Simulated assay, not measured.
Amino acid sequence: MTQHVRDIMTSQLVTVEPQASVTSVAQKMRDEDIGIVLVIEGDDLRGLVSDRDLVVRALAEGGDPDEKTVASACSDDLVTVTPDEDLDRAVELMREHSIRRLPVVEEGHAVGIVSIGDLAIERDARSALGDISAARPNQ
């Protein structure tokens, strides 16, 4: 049976607007215990920002993180999938673009996200990556 992205995607999204400060986004990630936030402008997906993006694109550049906006740190050249696409297509896109997370978009609006961890749990929950992805986060 073919599985679709909607079968495993995370639909509880954490979003920010492009003008949110780097500090506020980092705090949101900490509070929500997540490593990625979607950047939304109006109803449209503008980009995504990972914890690594914050470090490499914002903090490492110096300056006041309260003054820097997440727009300066987010990835805006996005690869996306729709909820109805096959999981195999999501895997193919992740491999092709060397990415770990794919925003799920329907009619231009973010409706979910699928990660390499989600795929690992679904495909082989007993694999090392599946075990790590299913485990409770470190505190």
Rank of each mutant, 00 (worst) to 15 (best):
T10A: 07
P65F: 01
V70S: 06
V55W: 09
E106G: 02
D33E: 06
E67R: 14
T2D: 09
V16S: 12
G117H: 08
G62A: 06
G42S: 11
S50M: 12
D7S: 13
D66Q: 13
V114Q: 10
H97V: 07
T82L: 00
E107G: 08
D131T: 11
E41H: 13
A125Y: 00
D124T: 10
V16L: 11
T82K: 04
K28D: 03
A90M: 03
R6W: 01
I113S: 02
P137R: 15
P18N: 10
T80V: 14
G108Q: 09
E96S: 06
C74L: 13
V111C: 08
V81C: 05
L54V: 11
V111E: 07
V16H: 05
S24C: 00
V25L: 02
T23V: 09
L119E: 07
R52A: 05
L54A: 06
V55Q: 07
R46Y: 13
L102G: 07
V37M: 08
V79R: 05
N138G: 01
R136K: 14
S115P: 07
E96R: 14
L102V: 07
R89E: 13
V104D: 07
G108M: 05
V111N: 03
V70K: 04
P65V: 00
D31W: 05
A110G: 06
L119F: 04
E17K: 12
G35M: 03
G117K: 11
G117C: 09
V114R: 11
E67P: 01
L13Y: 04
P65M: 02
R57H: 12
R52K: 14
L59E: 05
L102H: 11
L78D: 03
Q12N: 12
T2G: 00
V39A: 03
I40E: 12
V79K: 10
A20T: 14
V5P: 03
Q139I: 05
L129I: 10
V81I: 04
H4Y: 15
E61Q: 14
V56W: 00
R126Y: 13
I40L: 02
S50T: 15
T2E: 14
A135R: 12
S127M: 06
V55H: 09
A90R: 06
R46P: 01
N138F: 15
R6H: 14
I132L: 14
E92Q: 14
P83M: 07
G117S: 13
E85L: 01
Q139V: 06
G63N: 12
R100P: 08
M9N: 08
